[in-house]
Design a protein around this nucleic acid. Structure first.
Lengths: 218, 218
DNA sequence: TGTACATCAGTGAACGCGCGTTCACTGATGTAC
DNA sequence: TGTACATCAGTGAACGCGCGTTCACTGATGTAC
């Protein structure tokens, strides 16, 4: 998961390096991203790079750290706004998921890729520290969404026997899988549609189906 | 998605190179996998490699091609065996999904990674040909599962309004996302649990909930 | 059966380029007294 | 206000290693006649 939107860029050289690196890493991988291409994009010398990062793996760590922070902020934002719109935990969660799908749908060139997924497919290139950072990020998202699901389950007893940790994880899985799907088949809307499908699942799990006059469920 | 199980290895040098390359690419990326480490693993000289592959991108193509073929074979197998166990399209699909989850659960060290996802996160490194191969593989899987869902929908009208292409795609998304999840949090069972969750969703979409004596759905 | 040639599956040495990293240095701005 | 020193944000040149690729060559096996 994760978004590009960078609000109020500090625009210092360090940030520019990180921006160039993020785009390059997400489209060709960390090992194939060279320092030379980054400094060319930013317009500094090779040593300028090493002033900001002690070595290439310091760049990796900073990249992932920044990415996780930004994603956290987006989730904070979406969940908070959803809570403002409904006091019911299920409705709030459904609103949040719809907002998330809309954010994904509004990305002009589709989602650029998830840093967590990229790191996962380059494990061996990173130190323990970076891989731990990645693991903690996912467990943190699980905890956060699990909390919501617990509150929902209190009011709406689940109609099927699903593990709520798994259901929380599924959002991350659907998002990361949806990004791969979207990029591979060149359909930017596939990702938001997958998020909406996850939303439908959550709804089916917790709420009774409302059958309309036509016999079709609402 | 995709499995390691290599049945009846030809065990030629070319195959050994592909095996070594697959493991390396899935764990560190294509750009960071060197020809030198592959020939060291196989025990041939550098020129021995170039006898089998005209250049490194020929390796990439062969790697992806082989991976897709193997995955296709696994799906063929699972769907065929499920059809033998039930003539009902929904039950057969649910059986197939359970089998798939079991295959994932039985991998001793967890799923090694999906080649399609790896290629997706290394786009810029590959020629058009390889990226097209990747896209076609996904569209092919969509077509195959969509077919099943159509037959299910005929007999079991969906209880909610979901697009069947999206629902077919979701298996691939959940699998690829589940692989990333599993690897990142070091829980090999997270992937099969995600597949079972997708299975639960399919069941909720198509079949009426059966309420048991305790008031809990079956 | 013997000989000539072809193919298969490589070897070994060399190539030049690009990579990450280091090191001594620099000009502009900030701070202390 | 002037001077000394410190810090910030870099430059430029050089390093050695590892990379993908090429090329001339080779020994074993297969095939034609």
């Amino acid at each position: 998961m994760g978004i590009v939107t960078r609000d109020a860029k500090p625009s210092g050289t360090r940030t520019q390096i990180l921006d160039a690196a993020e785009a390059a890493v997400l489209s060709k991988g960390f090992g194939a991203t060279s320092i030379d291409e980054l400094i060319a994009a930013v317009g500094i010398s090779r040593s300028g790079f090493f002033y900001h990062f002690k070595d290439k793996s310091a760049l990796a760590k900073a990249l992932l750290q920044r990415y996780i922070e930004e994603d956290d902020k987006i989730f904070d934002d979406v969940l908070r706004r959803a809570d403002e719109l409904s006091e019911d935990p299920l409705h709030s969660y459904l609103i949040a998921l719809k907002m998330l799908a809309e954010i994904f749908a509004d990305l002009p060139n589709g989602h650029p890729g998830c840093m967590v997924a990229s790191v996962c497919y380059h494990e061996q290139l990173f130190q323990r520290e970076v891989r731990d950072l990645n693991e903690q990020a996912i467990l943190n998202w699980r905890r956060r969404f699990r909390e919501r699901l617990d509150r929902i389950a209190e009011r709406y007893p689940p109609r099927v026997d699903v593990d709520l940790d798994d259901l929380a994880d599924m959002l991350m899985a659907v998002a990361d899988g949806g990004i791969i799907l979207s990029r591979t088949i060149h359909d930017p809307m596939a990702l938001p549609r997958q998020v909406m499908l996850y939303r439908e699942f959550v709804r089916l799990v917790f709420s009774e189906p409302v059958v309309t006059a036509t016999g079709r469920p609402a």
